[in-house]
Design a protein around this nucleic acid. Sequence first.
RNA 1: GGCUGGAUGGCAGAGUGGUUAUGCAGCGGACUGCAAAUCCGUCUACGUCGGUUCGAUUCCGUCUCCAGCCUCCA
Length: 465
Amino acid sequence: MDIYIHDTLTGARRRFEPLVPDRVSMYVCGPTVYNLAHIGNALPAVAFDVLARVLRLYFKHVTYVHNITDIDDKINAAALANGEPIRALADRFAAEYRADIAALGVLNPDVEPRATEHISEIIDMIETLIDRGHAYAAEGHVLFDVPSDPSYGSLSKQSLENILEGARVEVAPYKRDPKDFVLWKPSSDELPGWDSPWGRGRPGWHIECSAMIRKHLGPSIDIHGGGSDLTFPHHENELAQGTCVEDGQVYVRYWMHNGLLRMGDEKMSKSLGNIATIRSLRGEHPGEVLRYALLSGHYRGSLEWSDDLIRQARSSLNTLYQALVDAPGDNGATSENFHDANVDAFPETVLAPLRNDLNTPQALAAMHAIAGDIHKTGDAARARALRDQLLAGGWLLGILGTPANDYFQHAAGADPGWIESMIEKRARARDSRDFASADAIREELAASGIELEDTASGTRWKVMR
RNA sequence: GGCUGGAUGGCAGAGUGGUUAUGCAGCGGACUGCAAAUCCGUCUACGUCGGUUCGAUUCCGUCUCCAGCCUCCA
């Protein structure tokens, strides 16, 4: 059993081996909470959720830390515009974010740290960087001294000259080098601030993550994930801080970056405004459908988000649920039953692609193969075993979490009792070969969004979806 | 301009030096009173131009196009 992960730093797929056997430390950058999250924000949450599920099967201790950035200029601006206290606004949208990704089946991380709760760790780390000659204070700011880190640029594969040439930001006069970035900056009285050796101020974005990683996972971690748009400068800067604060320690063993969702041929982003919020999407679609859509592409690719993608995901997921409905015996079980199952309980055909750099499209293909086998086998015991395989695979992917019947019957616009009585009426009509009446009843149900299926064991109904 | 990655059938999207991805949709058939679900069959593929090779969608190079990053961003 080997797990492979594509590592951004080396640009290669590498066999995964944690620093300490049986212990995996994983950190994923979460959102800055100043408004509702969009579906692009959910991609890393979902992808790394699947990774965590897989890793927990093979390693006894997995610590998954997923942060929330709750101190940021955009938060300040949003709070000001709202006339709302900054802390209240950040808390509110942090809760909204949690609710949104929970609806997509994302399990809670082990730790969900907030930057504002780690100010002393941040200050400590900045002081260490200054002591070691990698940072300097100037005019109330503290800046990281980029030229002091010879390997700067290695993660984003940028040469220092190119960073300079491409720079579109004005260079502050207190910077020794244009590439130096802020670790600490002063705050005015109306902005949030904390006392520090450099006066009242607040942390820069990059140091927050480094300090929280250090606190919760230590100086050297196994996996660091996030969107590919964070590679530069955020993760490059984190790498510089995390490396320079120690002597020759590897800050991150595997850097993982998910691709970005596109909408209308462009990256979905709050700045561009071409976003679909998770909130609005899950008003229209089950969270599981949205999750399936996200998993239908490989996490490193760029997936085109569209209504058609959602429609296809919905149909595909229906097919899997249909197999559960058609499996003989009790179909009240869900993938949730495999929450604590041993690795042997999971289908290798689904697991193997996931171990190979989280190949979710291939895993889903294997799920459909199992679903097909459920229909094709004539053996009831075999079908039940396959049903369990399907549910187990569903657990890894975070889908099939609803009892199959409920999935097709929940949110029925009509009273189930009425539906059953209509079905009975139709059965009598069919028995007397009055197909015109029988079809009329079926039409009437269809008008209420109810679809009928006549099976060998009787007629069953489901909500059209 | 620099860096990184990508171009696969109607759509989405894996993968592979020679053999079916898969799903969605379409078409034909089976089943059904008719449907639905399911099963069987089936049509559209690997951006361009070269090279390596017995053989390339898969390796190498060229070109074209696209996206991301170089500024906050998942």
